[in-house]
Design a protein around this nucleic acid. Structure first.
Length: 575
DNA sequence: TCGGTCACGTA
DNA sequence: CGTACGTGACCGAG
């Protein structure tokens, strides 16, 4: 009987949680509720690929470490439960190492980060078991002490399965705040999609974003000059750009990279400003060629330092793929990316372009934050507005204002604006959408007090641990107000991030069998690189995936979620 | 060598 | 208007 048939007999089936531990070059250990076994094989990843066809829900410590070798070998696991990602969700952790996640699940103190050599003190009280007498995981095991022996790998998989059981119970105990509840709780769905987002992060880091080097190099050459071959060339290119600004100002040249000397320079020209931020200088640009030159210099300098030749050399591979490291949830719960992936200036987007025959399918969620506010606050009137394609239109009618004012008022409410022109509109918001406004105020109040909050999907926002001590500084300090604004925004931004990741996971599942992959996640925007013949199916998938996600994410709320989808050869054209 | 500040890109 | 994040240059303290 084949391995696969045996596993099926023993209860491995689609959706069944199976803890996986890979011992490189040795084999794998599996552990699930109705069985456990080790499989010795010199090529363990081949075995994982085989078992994945049964569709188990892989349980692993973190996708970052455990899925990386799978993805690198070409495996695209169907489903997982990422203990680290769920640990972050449940406990508001800023780390996801096994020792920390385990401790949090059992209500223990966070252990010190396991780094450096183990001392005798560390090993005291460890009798060779994975779990110590004090309930923490063994430092020896955390450092990979299980990896050369399948028997120990099996015990390590058992430990993961046990943590999964505890996490699952904790997740199921979280409140489900939906209007229309189903049999599966919302936080449970979110635990799954947060896990899948962590896996997507590994795939994004592996696959990279396609860059057309010729287009990029043309742009860099015209903006900052040709690629410098020596340090001398680099200095002279800098100097050439600097001179374009200096020639507009009489007297000694100053260091343009030092804001305080720039401020002096402007003062000499009769322009007094408290700081030299571009939005403050912008009004002078029309009348002062010097300011205009300085602003142009700033743009070029940004490219030269952050998105210039050095960046291209460092972060774009020989295969023309821009790669960074991705995290699935930081701060309020958004994904983050390094290597400039999340703040690529729009001028660079024409360079994001796949090879001939492939296209980019771009989809973005329209007006996502106000729609999310309507859903998570349970405000019936705002949900009514969120039935429309453009929800600011009905809001404007309700506030008897124009659309622009309505938009400002809604955004001001979500971001905690304290001053400005939205004052009157904000008071109308209070009258028209009292439930949503009370929801936001309650979040701000929690933040100010330093009381922990959970997002709609169950993410713990550890406001008691945020900068500034709530106890020492009192509820009216600057840091208390800072936490208040953060909390007010985080309950919306965080829930929007959860929705986005759930949508992303659904899109990913729908891509199986197509020649297409997700190459960018940008808060409310998804980019899929696809073989041209498959692009129409990807376009359709973006919409159907959103519908099916909305059917559980905001069940019963009446809120409509909308995605705008387009296909193009470059990121810039997909708008 | 480090943290703080300024600046600025995206959402 | 305000929030989140990552990056880089500079300053001043150590």
């Amino acid at each position: 009987m084949s391995l696969i048939h045996e596993l099926v007999d023993e209860g491995v089936a689609p959706g069944v949680p199976v803890a996986l531990v890979v011992a490189p070059g040795v084999g794998i250990a599996l552990s699930w509720n109705s069985g456990r076994r080790v499989i010795a094989d010199k090529d363990p990843l081949r075995v994982v690929a085989e078992v994945d066809t049964l569709g188990p829900r892989w349980i692993w410590w973190t996708s970052r470490e455990d899925a990386e070798p799978l993805v690198a070998s070409g495996i695209r696991p169907r489903a997982c439960w990422d203990l680290g990602a769920v640990g972050r969700l449940l406990h508001g952790l800023s780390r996801d190492d096994a020792g920390a996640v385990w401790a949090a699940a059992f209500g223990l103190e966070q252990p010190p980060r396991a780094e450096g050599e183990l001392s005798l003190l560390d090993l005291a009280g460890e009798a060779g078991d994975a779990v110590r007498e004090d309930g923490h995981l063994s430092r020896e095991w955390l450092r990979g002490g299980w990896a050369d022996d399948l028997d120990r790998a099996q015990r390590w998989a058992d430990v993961a399965l046990r943590l999964h059981a505890v996490q699952e119970e904790l997740v199921r105990a979280l409140p489900d705040r939906r209007t229309g509840r189903g049999s599966t709780t919302l936080p449970y769905f979110i635990a799954l999609s947060e896990s899948m987002a962590a896996l997507v992060c590994v795939e994004l880091a592996h696959d990279g974003l396609p860059v057309d080097r010729a287009v990029l190099e043309e742009f860099l050459t015209t903006t900052v000059g040709p690629r410098p071959r020596t340090e001398v060339e680099e200095v002279s290119a800098r100097h050439r750009r600097d001179r374009e600004v200096w020639r507009h100002f009489p007297g000694e040249p100053v260091d343009l990279r030092n804001p305080s000397t720039v401020r002096d320079l402007l003062a000499r020209a009769g322009i007094e400003v408290p700081d030299t931020r571009s939005w403050r200088l912008e009004p002078y640009a029309a009348t002062s060629p010097g300011i205009s030159a300085l602003l142009a210099w700033r743009k070029a300098e940004r490219v030269a330092t952050t998105y210039g030749w050095a960046w291209a050399e460092r972060d774009i591979g020989g295969d023309g793929r821009l790669r960074g490291t991705w995290t699935a949830a930081e701060g309020a719960g958004r994904m983050t990316a390094s290597a400039g992936l999340h703040n690529l200036p729009s001028e660079l987007r024409p360079s994001v372009r796949p090879l001939e025959g492939r296209v980019l399918v771009r989809a973005d969620l329209g007006q996502i934050e106000p729609r999310v506010l309507a859903a998570v606050s349970g405000d019936a009137a705002l949900a009514e507005a969120a039935r429309e394609d453009d929800m600011y239109a009905p809001v404007a009618r309700a506030l008897s204002s124009d659309r622009a004012t309505a938009k400002i008022a809604v955004l001001a409410a979500m971001y905690g604006q304290t001053s400005g022109a939205a004052g009157a509109a904000l008071r109308d918001m209070d009258r028209t959408y009292p439930t949503a406004m009370a929801f936001l105020r309650a979040a701000e109040e929690s933040g100010r007090r330093g009381a922990d909050l959970r997002t709609y999907g169950g993410r713990l926002l550890p406001l008691s641990k945020l900068a500034g001590s709530p106890a020492a500084e009192g509820p009216d300090s600057d840091s208390a107000h800072g936490r208040g604004r953060f909390a007010r925004n985080a309950v919306v931004q965080g829930a929007a991030a959860e929705l986005f990741k759930a949508w992303t996971a659904t899109v990913r599942a729908g891509l199986v069998g197509l020649d297409a992959r997700i190459v960018m996640c940008l808060h409310d925007e998804l980019l899929v690189e696809a073989n041209e013949p498959d692009s129409a199916r990807v376009v359709a998938l973006m919409g159907t995936a959103l519908e099916s996600t909305a059917s559980w994410w905001c069940a019963g709320s009446g809120v409509r979620l909308v995605a705008e989808v387009s296909v193009a050869d470059t990121w810039a054209d997909a708008h």
